[in-house]
Computed example of a mutant assay.
Amino acid sequence: MTEEAIAKAVGEELRIARETLGWSRTFMVSRLPSGIGDRTLLSYEHGMRQITVFRLIELSEAVGLASSSVLAMALQRARVDLANLELIVDLRSLLADFSPQFRPLHQWAKNKGNQCPDGIARIPPAAIDELATFMGCTPRDLVLHLTKFTPDYVAEVVNGRAQRGLLKVPD
């Protein structure tokens, strides 16, 4: 189940990035040096085929995203290996949540929002541990709560590169 969830999540991240650029599968494969076909790309995007590290790097670079960012977002969406991830959280969505146990996060999210004008925050594992201690919950419980606020895709292309919050590849 975990392998399938990761494959599907990685494929979804790549598909959304391609679509954000307005590219068809045919156009994208024409830009790849490996010469894979449309059906191969389709099978990656739908998680029907395991993607190699080399292919992940190639496809990520093609759409202008760092492969590490694609993998991190995929793992977050699939809720796999969360204890080791820097979580990406939509602060505005978090502020709209009124779960009693996590209500004390509101002030933190408001303050963090002042540092993140786009409303998207990166939270490293060490900060998760500290927030969990403050909240009186386990880091795992906090992480599972925060993954509910994984940002939606921002359909934006800047300089021909797909962007989603803080995941753009530096020029």
Rank of each mutant, 00 (worst) to 15 (best):
T2S: 12
E3W: 02
E4K: 11
E4P: 06
K8M: 08
E12A: 11
R15A: 15
I16H: 01
E19H: 10
T20R: 01
L21C: 03
R25W: 07
T26V: 12
F27H: 13
L32G: 05
G37T: 14
L42D: 15
H46A: 04
H46P: 00
R49N: 13
T52E: 11
V53T: 12
L56V: 08
I57W: 07
E58F: 03
E58Y: 03
L59G: 08
S60A: 15
A62T: 11
V63S: 07
G64W: 02
G64R: 03
L65P: 09
L65Y: 07
A66E: 14
S68Y: 05
A72E: 11
A74S: 08
L75T: 12
A78C: 03
R79Y: 04
A83K: 11
N84L: 14
I88V: 15
I88E: 09
S93Q: 14
L95Y: 04
A96T: 06
D97Q: 02
F98I: 02
P100K: 02
F102W: 14
R103P: 00
R103V: 05
P104F: 07
Q107E: 14
W108P: 00
A109L: 01
A109T: 10
N114V: 11
C116T: 08
C116V: 11
C116F: 02
P117K: 02
P117V: 03
P117H: 02
G119N: 04
A121R: 03
R122T: 09
I123W: 01
I123T: 03
P125Q: 03
A127K: 11
E130H: 09
E130K: 10
L131S: 05
A132C: 04
A132M: 06
A132I: 11
T133D: 05
T133M: 04
M135K: 06
R140I: 12
R140A: 12
D141G: 01
D141C: 00
L142V: 03
V143F: 00
V143C: 05
F149Q: 09
F149P: 07
T150L: 01
P151V: 05
D152N: 14
E156A: 13
E156N: 06
V158C: 01
N159C: 04
N159F: 05
G160I: 01
G160N: 06
G160Y: 04
R161F: 07
R161C: 08
A162W: 08
R164Q: 13
L166A: 04
V169N: 05
V169M: 12
D171K: 12
